[in-house]
């Protein structure tokens, strides 16, 4: 079940949700980061046996999001593909046909190679960055005049539970001038040191299956 939490950023209403994306109702825009499509297939090519259902999990979650918010455009702030085209990006492109009227904009990430080919193949707009005031969509976190919305970090936090059992969860990091998204794909790692080394990120929104919760850094 999608659980969401509303924040106001630059005077705009944004919905952060536990499906690791942001919906901007005013523009009907869904934003996500670090999909890393094709990562398991890339691993398999190197002899690491991983099942196909791994990408299916991500696509199923994306379907739920699109059916829930009915956005007109999706912005992926980088690392849509893990390592170029492979059998799983084919699955991805087949899946895309389910939503023919949806407009996709891809911000180039460090994993997105062969961009020309990608834009032709997926019919995506591929750009270095995108400005839609008051926001500036980029891959790497940065500061600027506009509020930047970025990915790349895969931020996470370590929570201490009872009985000394720690729990690592992905999170959104929010500053007045910056928002960093968690990685969308479930098949990605977490960087829990980033939050620790950047105490300026005081608002941390932790996501889990159960919901989305604000904690203090």
């Amino acid at each position: 079940m999608i659980q969401q939490l509303e924040i106001i950023s630059g005077g705009e209403r944004l919905l952060l949700n536990n499906y690791r994306s942001i919906f901007w109702p005013a523009r009907k825009m869904l934003t996500l980061a670090d999909l890393h499509a094709g990562k398991p297939a890339h691993f398999r090519r190197h002899g690491i046996a991983l099942p196909q259902q791994i990408i299916q999990r991500d696509l199923d979650r994306l379907t739920v999001l699109i059916e829930h918010y009915t956005p007109t455009q999706v912005v992926v702030v980088g690392d849509m593909l893990h390592s170029g085209r492979n059998s799983e990006t084919e699955i991805f492109s087949k899946w895309l046909k389910k939503f023919p009227s949806l407009k996709w904009i891809l911000i180039k990430g460090n994993h997105d190679r062969n961009l020309l080919e990608l834009s032709e193949f997926f019919h995506f707009d591929v750009v270095d960055s995108l400005e839609v005031s008051p926001f500036h969509f980029v891959h790497h976190p940065q500061e600027g005049d506009l509020i930047t919305i970025s990915g790349h970090i895969h931020p996470g936090v370590k929570l201490r539970g009872a009985n000394r059992q720690g729990l690592k969860l992905p999170c959104f990091l929010v500053l007045p001038k910056q928002i960093i998204l968690p990685a969308f794909s479930l098949f990605t790692g977490l960087d829990t040191d980033f939050v620790k080394h950047h105490p300026e990120f005081t608002s941390v929104y932790v996501v889990s299956d159960e919901g989305i919760f604000e904690t203090k850094n």
Binding site: H46, P51, Q53, H82, G189
Partner: peptide
Amino acid sequence: KLKSIQASSGIIFKALDDVDPQN
């Protein structure tokens, strides 16, 4: 380059636990 074929065992465990419990 080979580093991009590295995933942590924790991520793989979670993925298999979700999608391939008979592994």
